[in-house]
């Protein structure tokens, strides 16, 4: 099939989002389902159909959401209403909007885990400690399912 000439193609915009919390293992399909649910509930079926949102990339704590040009502000607003990915609590933080994925890739700063240093006990529960840059410390409850997460800083952890 002959492709459409460039002037006839749909113009698109790409939104780079950071997925919080850092350690979450987000599947691209799950992110897509969360995005579609948020956009549909906020703007309705008709507007969602016209905006054509899709998740084209999801890796390393970042995702790229594609939409039609002109709808990127509406989609970014809807992305702010995402509260969960799959069964896990999460948030999507808009980093940048661009006309190409290549430009967005340059904005991706890899989130590197500094260290995973043992366990701590809070009350009755044991938590695994994950340290991130800027003194951020995430504590994830040990368990198989529905683990609780706590978000501390290095100073908070030293105080306790």
């Amino acid at each position: 099939m002959k492709p459409r000439p460039p002037a006839m193609r749909t113009k698109r915009r790409y939104i780079l989002v950071r997925i919080l919390p850092y350690g979450i293992t987000a599947d691209q399909k799950q992110v897509y389902l969360s995005v579609i649910e948020a956009v549909t509930s906020l703007w309705g079926d008709a507007a969602t159909g016209l905006a054509q949102p899709a998740v084209v990339f999801c890796d390393g704590g970042y995702a790229v959401v594609r939409c039609r040009r002109g709808t990127e502000k509406d989609i970014a607003t809807a992305l702010a209403t995402v509260t969960a990915i799959g069964d896990e609590q999460a948030a999507l933080r808009t980093v940048a909007t661009s006309g190409t994925i290549h430009a967005l890739r340059r904005r991706i700063k890899p989130i590197r885990l500094l260290s995973e240093t043992g366990d701590v006990k809070f009350g009755e529960n044991y938590f695994t400690v994950y340290r991130y840059p800027r003194q951020k410390v995430d504590l994830v409850e040990k368990g198989i399912k529905h683990q609780k997460s706590l978000f501390f800083t290095e100073a908070d952890l030293e105080e306790r």
Binding site: P21, A80, A90
Partner: peptide
């Protein structure tokens, strides 16, 4: 109640525009 509930100033502008 969590860092996951905090939103950026830009997001707040979009949500208030609703």
């Amino acid at each position: 109640c969590s860092i996951l509930g905090q939103r950026s100033v830009r997001d707040v502008r979009g949500l208030c525009a609703l």
